[in-house]
Nucleic acid binder design. Structure first.
Lengths: 242, 242
DNA sequence: CAGTGGTCTAGACCACCTG
DNA sequence: AGGTGGTCTAGACCACTGC
């Protein structure tokens, strides 16, 4: 028996630990049936299925009709590449050492931005806070991020916060709650500053992630562009088919 | 009142049409409350919420606690780029004309493959069917796909089928059911054959999508690699935050 | 046939937003 | 306070798998 979780979220956490520690799976990687999980954690079937579904979305387990639930085979690290999990509840993809080595901010108008939200609906004179951040991973230059935050939503950004996650800062501090993020991934040619940072020639390839971040109210909070060193960065996602 | 759907899937379809035709939203893009949708379609709240959640995953609507459900602002087509929706139930992203212009197949062993599944667990002498397909979109060279299918799972592939979707062919014909797909997206340098097809120089950039396709039983069915003309292809996804 | 996951219902209670 | 979505329970019935 296990301690009764007070929410599905807690149940997921407990099950994750149990899967990690292999205290809940047999030698073939099979989990207990839903009915047994209900007894084990003293929750309803709804809670069990919510948890299993979430674990499935994260690529940790899969379920097969009429058979049971199984853990995915363990991850084999790709050689020298860094996987950036996307489409997963928490983007804590690894225990790798990702740090911001340089950052700066300034205030601009929308018309001065390098790029625009995919679904543009804002007036040209919208005030934005522009942030540029250079990040290294395990000491190697890894990504360059340029972000634009809507100034009327966040007012100011303390300089020291530029080196941490801004979203979690504002979610914790004020009332902002992120609802969804639109992502566009493509390949572009490197600009000079990023090329210098990566030690590549400008005009070379770079993997680009464009994010438009919306609040749960549907308002646009920020739009950003992340350029990866194409030799290091890759984006990973697992997709369930229904 | 609307006709009662016989399943959540049908409900989603009916609601999609109603949203498209704007017969279910008001001027501000607001949908009826969940309670009203229950009455309207004569289904339980579970069904309504399943449908709304799915529509949310597809980036069509969003819900805000204490307020209501709203449709996302309509899509503004990116200029000259092609969006390939990923992480969506059906990857029917557009009405664009995507056709396979050249295709070939041959039989090889795993040791002869150009690349391998991310989580390799197969013996070197595993029999594979290798397929190379060149695709154009609206008449322009767009992508080159190289796929390897496990021969013991699909036996043979009729040549004329190479020009259509193999997954739906086998799902309809035999018993294969796809369960999940692992995707890795990165940027690579073009090889000669793809470069020639795109009209680019080899060594230039290309957006690469690596897919490992698993059956619902957890068995690997196929692994593939799609190279996009970086000037045309981009991958789009919308992510809900919980 | 028994056991498994897949679908759906009815209802309760809570948290959030607006007047 | 009343309406909205968010969470969770208990239970029913169906579909798939294997013996």
């Amino acid at each position: 028996m296990s301690e009764k979780p007070s929410s599905v979220k807690e149940l997921i956490s407990q099950m994750s630990v149990a899967i990690e520690g292999k205290t809940i799976i047999n030698n073939e990687g099979k989990l207990p049936s839903e009915k047994e999980l209900m007894k084990r954690y003293d929750v309803s079937r709804y809670a069990v299925r919510q948890a299993l579904s979430q674990l499935g979305e994260r690529g940790i387990i899969y379920q097969t009709h009429g058979i049971g639930s199984f853990v995915r085979q363990e991850e084999q690290l790709p050689t020298g590449k860094v996987r950036n999990n996307i489409g997963v509840t928490s983007d804590v993809s690894s225990s790798l050492n990702l740090i911001t080595v340089k950052a700066s901010q300034s205030q601009v108008k929308l018309s001065e931005a390098d790029f625009l939200p995919v679904h543009l609906k804002l007036p040209d004179d919208t005030e934005l806070i522009e942030i540029i951040r250079y990040r290294s991973l395990e000491g190697r230059p890894y990504q360059v991020e340029k972000s634009y935050y809507l100034k009327d939503l966040i007012e100011t950004i303390p300089d020291q916060q530029l080196y941490d996650s801004l979203f979690s800062y504002y979610e914790a501090k004020s009332e902002l709650k992120v609802g969804f993020i639109d992502k566009v991934i493509r390949c572009e040619l490197l600009e000079e500053s990023a090329a210098n940072f990566f030690g590549l020639v400008s005009g070379g390839p770079t993997l680009v992630e464009r994010d438009d971040t919306y609040l749960s109210t549907g308002k646009l909070l920020a739009f950003s562009k992340i350029c990866y060193d194409y030799r290091l960065g890759e984006l990973y996602l697992s997709k369930k088919i229904y």
